[in-house]
Design a protein around this nucleic acid. Structure first.
Length: 414
DNA sequence: TCTGGGGTCCTAGGACCC
DNA sequence: TCTGGGGTCCTAGGACCC
């Protein structure tokens, strides 16, 4: 199950008047396009296209633009995923707008289940979705893609016989295959492989040699042999990153502290939600992907380790600021910063360091209390004084004042 | 003037062990 | 002149995903 133009569809649930109108959603810092309505796709605007390049088009066609509002998208995502439970237990939530479901073997009912999924989510959440049904994840993804693009499918494509698999293979451009990215697509096309069918016609050894085990699995999946497991309860995260580009350059340690403290607090909060602790934090700074004045690219980073793994905001923020101080240098025009929590483990069963003198328990309790208060009164209602109060990024086109308090969100919903 | 922010897995090579 | 053969763990970098 794949939501169509997900972020755009989310904005439209709040603004039903934008149905059939051109709508797009921008990345953080209002940098590039990350979601497009069908009307915007028809105008030739590409995924990931820088916003400044299309300002003329936006004006000319009256395109409605939104800064991304992930609180809204996650809220709607959660409701969609909950509805899926009625159709198959334990859907695998693959991303904010996609899930895999393990359907019953009874092939006569498959298509009807797909139709019911599309109808239910449309009626109860107001988001259009596509469903692809097939024996492997790779084929199901391709089927959902076709169901999305061709209105004759009414949102559901079922690829459940060898003949249908063969047809799908020959229709599918190699670059559209799940697992074949830009690099491999270029390589394969230069070898005369244009469709999924051309690809599966290659010997397995050749695929293994040039594309390693992942490519080989894709090759087998395209032929109906499942290689990517249905993962009911995905393992816990291996890292948690929070990073942002700045609306304008920052050049001093003093000015960098606030956003970095904000990132650290946000990462620590995500960590606690997962019930995990981190043994390391990485801090990084950069002057962006496109440095001003032809300056050389700068990427500075450092790792700070904790004697005992932690999840509390105070210790994690302190470590982040310590790391920041050690890498920041004068005369760099910083455009981006971030923190990454690494070496994660489950909270229970952590080893205390023998020579550790910090009262972690106190800090953990403070963070737990802060989480409870912020749960009721809104994100960052209670925070460390060093922390920035606002995102350092540009967000000039938010659809509404972000709903921060759960009770406000509910009011809106009902 | 203006170009996102998260994640995953695999491989090769080096450090180190016995 | 001649210098083994196994491992494991970690990291960086490259590929991919949404």
């Amino acid at each position: 199950m794949d939501c169509n133009n997900f972020f755009v569809s989310c904005e439209r649930t709040v603004r039903p008047d934008l149905e059939k109108k051109p709508v797009l959603v921008l990345s953080n810092n209002d940098g590039c396009v990350i979601a497009r309505s069908n009307e915007v796709k028809a105008l030739g605007i590409k995924m990931g296209q820088p916003f400044f390049q299309i300002k003329e088009l936006v004006k000319r066609h009256g395109i409605h633009c939104f800064s991304s509002n992930f609180i809204l998208y996650e809220d709607i995502s959660h409701r969609v995923m909950q509805l899926l439970e009625q159709f198959a237990p334990n859907p695998e939530i693959y991303s904010v707008d996609e899930a895999f479901l393990h359907l019953p073997d009874d092939t006569s009912r498959l298509r009807q289940i797909g139709i019911d999924i599309v109808k239910t989510i449309d009626q109860q959440v107001g988001v259009p979705v596509s469903v692809g049904i097939a024996p492997t994840k790779t084929l199901a993804k391709a089927a959902a893609d076709i169901a999305k693009k061709d209105a004759r499918y009414h949102g559901v494509a079922c690829v459940d016989t060898p003949e249908k698999i063969a047809t799908l293979q020959s229709m599918l451009p190699i670059g559209d295959v799940w697992g074949i990215g830009r690099r491999y697509a270029k390589f394969l096309i230069s070898n005369g492989i244009l469709t999924a069918k051309d690809f599966v016609d290659k010997p397995q050894q050749w695929v293994r040699r040039h594309m390693s085990v992942m490519g080989e699995k894709t090759w087998r999946e395209l032929q109906g042999e499942p290689c990517f497991e249905y993962n009911r309860s995905p393992e816990k995260r291996q890292q948690i990153m929070v990073s942002r580009s700045f609306a304008s350059v920052i050049t001093t340690f003093e000015a960098l502290r606030e956003p970095v403290a904000l990132f650290a607090a946000s990462a620590a909060h995500k960590l606690r939600q997962q019930g995990m602790v981190a043994a390391q934090i990485e801090v990084f700074l950069s002057n962006g992907r496109f440095p001003a004045d032809n300056a050389a690219k700068v990427w500075q980073s450092t790792i700070v380790s904790f004697a005992t793994p932690v999840s509390n905001t105070t210790e994690i923020t302190n470590a982040a600021l310590l790391g920041l101080k050690s890498i920041v240098s004068k005369s760099v025009k910083y455009k981006q910063a971030g923190v990454v929590l690494r070496s994660l483990s489950h909270q229970e069963g952590i080893q205390a360091d023998l020579f550790d003198t910090i009262d972690h328990d106190k800090h953990q309790k403070i963070s737990a209390v802060m989480d409870r208060i912020n749960q009721s009164y809104g994100r960052n209602y209670l925070r460390l004084a060093i922390q920035a109060t606002e995102s350092p990024s540009r967000q000039e086109m938010l659809s509404s004042k972000q709903p921060t308090r759960p009770d406000e969100r509910n009011k809106k919903k009902h």
